[in-house]
């Protein structure tokens, strides 16, 4: 039974990591190509979740909701890019932080205005409601396995997009020399909008997928956003491979820490204080891990810029 529990926790960690990857991939792509730090990425995640919950409630279909989440987040991303973000590429990071912080305030209050303060709920689609047996006894929810599958598919898809297609070639060219690619006749403004919308759509997808596991509410994107920052700092800003490795590491370390630390402390102290101290330390674990990584490699594990 103990091994089954451990396997279950590892899978939970993977699922969490995959979800972080969907967020981190967009963030790191936007930073790598446009040099922009986007705090409002968590708002796009929230928009995806709200769009999915609203459409799923209206039509009764989770899958339509999923499509709506992609469309809504991508559209919101494109609108924000054209109206605000575009003016920030030449500014310093401080201006970018502030402007996107302002966007968070606007998005959060705006969403609360439209949907009210009560959380929305999103049901897991009937197709994925079951559980699959695990080796060593126990069972694991099919929906969470499906999230892991989606994450792997997105990772492969992004890899193919960036290494094999014309758009990917332009993205890579934009990363290394934006003046040159503009001089070669590529419409850099449209390219930026497309990249931003792509990152936004991934964040919206993550929000919709997680929306079925947790409640859909204002502010849901913020804890995830900060974890996604930790992920890309660990992985190396601008590197999608780094985002994948960092996300899985953070997901697994965080989940296993919460599971194992209280157990470990219980071996030499009484149960209730072990649970308290274990939980408190577990919540800090990934930040300690990040500090360790940075102490050894200040540019992250797979830095895109040398």
């Amino acid at each position: 039974m103990q091994t089954a529990l451990l396997i279950e926790q590892i899978l939970n960690g993977l699922q969490f990591g995959v979800m972080l990857f969907l967020m981190a991939a967009g963030l790191t792509l936007i930073f790598g190509v446009m040099g922009l730090i986007n705090l409002a990425h968590g708002s796009l995640y929230m928009i995806g979740a709200f769009a999915c919950a609203t459409v799923a409630a209206a039509t009764g279909s989770f899958w339509l909701g999923l499509v709506a989440s992609l469309a809504a987040a991508a559209a919101a991303g494109a609108i924000v890019e054209v109206t605000v973000i575009r003016r920030l590429y030449d500014r310093d990071h401080l201006d970018q932080v502030l402007a996107t912080f302002a966007l968070i305030l606007i998005f959060s209050e705006g969403t609360r205005w439209v949907f009210g303060s009560f959380p929305l709920y999103l049901d897991i689609p009937p197709l994925l409601r079951g559980a699959l047996p695990l080796p060593g006894g126990g069972a694991y929810p099919a929906y969470r396995l499906a999230i892991i599958g989606v994450g792997i598919a997105v990772a492969v898809g992004l890899y193919l997009l960036i290494s094999r297609t014309r758009l990917g070639m332009r993205i890579r060219a934009g990363e290394s020399d934006r003046e040159m690619i503009a001089a070669l006749g590529v419409d850099i403004r449209t390219l930026y909008t497309v990249v931003f919308a792509l990152g936004a759509a991934l964040a919206g997808l993550a929000g919709a997928l997680v929306g079925a596991l947790q409640s859909v509410q204002v502010g849901m994107g913020e804890p995830v956003l900060i974890l996604a920052f930790v992920v890309i700092v660990i992985g190396g800003i601008g590197s999608i491979k780094g985002a994948l490795v960092g996300a899985v590491l953070v997901g697994v370390i965080d989940t296993l820490g919460r599971f194992l630390l209280p157990v470990a402390f219980a071996t030499f102290m009484d149960a209730s204080s072990a649970a308290g101290i274990g939980a408190a330390l577990a919540s800090m674990l990934i930040y300690v891990f990040m500090a360790l990584v940075l102490a050894i490699r200040p540019q992250g594990l797979f830095s895109a810029q040398g």
Binding site: H93, F229, V230, V233, I237, M290, L294, Q299, G300
Partner: peptide
């Protein structure tokens, strides 16, 4: 730069 912003945030 950005790393500094994010690391102070993370701490």
């Amino acid at each position: 730069g950005v790393y500094f912003i994010m690391i102070t945030l993370a701490f």
